[in-house]
Amino acid sequence: MIKLSTILAGTAVAMFAQFAAAQAPMTQTQSAAVPANDPAYIDQSRLNYKEDPYVKARIARGQANAEYRAERQGARTEYKEEVGAARAERREAVRDANATRASEIRNEPMK
């Protein structure tokens, strides 16, 4: 029982310490001023990004994707127009066939 109470007391103290640390105001440290043109602080990857082969490949892939999408959209538009025209033509053929059949039925002598 003594061991259990010692463990519980230690746990309570640890929790209190964590809670107190979380409630303490954070002190802000002053950030060091970055010199304007100091080469040690200039991000070289941003300056030379056009020479990076991965960036070149990404730009080329983006352009190829854009061209593909534009070409695909044009083909889809053309296909939809062709399908629409074919459907309209088929509807007209069905209407003509129905009208012809109806007139034949009307003109047919009764048996």
Rank of each mutant, 00 (worst) to 15 (best):
M1P: 11
M1V: 08
I2R: 15
I2Q: 14
L4W: 03
S5W: 02
T6H: 08
L8P: 01
G10W: 01
G10M: 08
T11E: 10
T11M: 14
A12W: 02
A12K: 05
V13D: 06
V13E: 06
A14L: 15
A17N: 01
A17F: 07
A17V: 06
Q18W: 03
Q18D: 00
F19W: 13
F19D: 01
A20I: 02
A20G: 00
A22T: 01
Q23F: 05
Q23K: 12
A24Q: 09
A24F: 04
P25F: 09
M26F: 10
T27K: 14
Q28D: 11
T29C: 05
T29D: 10
S31F: 12
A32Q: 12
A32T: 13
A32I: 09
A33L: 13
A33K: 14
V34D: 05
V34L: 14
V34C: 01
A36T: 08
A36G: 04
N37T: 07
D38E: 02
D38V: 05
A40P: 01
A40M: 07
D43E: 12
D43N: 14
Q44G: 04
R46M: 12
N48V: 09
N48W: 11
Y49K: 14
E51R: 11
E51W: 02
D52N: 15
P53N: 09
Y54S: 10
V55M: 12
V55R: 11
K56N: 03
K56H: 02
A57L: 07
R58Y: 07
R58S: 12
I59L: 06
A60V: 01
A66Y: 04
E67D: 15
E67F: 06
A70S: 11
Q73I: 09
Q73F: 06
G74Y: 04
R76E: 14
T77G: 06
E78M: 07
E78A: 15
E78Y: 02
K80F: 08
K80W: 08
V83T: 03
G84S: 10
A86M: 12
A86Y: 06
A86F: 07
R87C: 02
R87L: 09
E89C: 00
R90A: 15
E92T: 07
A93S: 07
V94Y: 06
R95Y: 03
D96E: 12
A97E: 15
N98C: 03
N98I: 07
A99E: 08
A99D: 07
A99N: 05
R101Q: 14
R101T: 09
S103I: 00
I105G: 08
R106T: 04
R106S: 10
N107R: 13
P109K: 11
P109T: 06
P109Y: 09
M110A: 12
K111S: 11
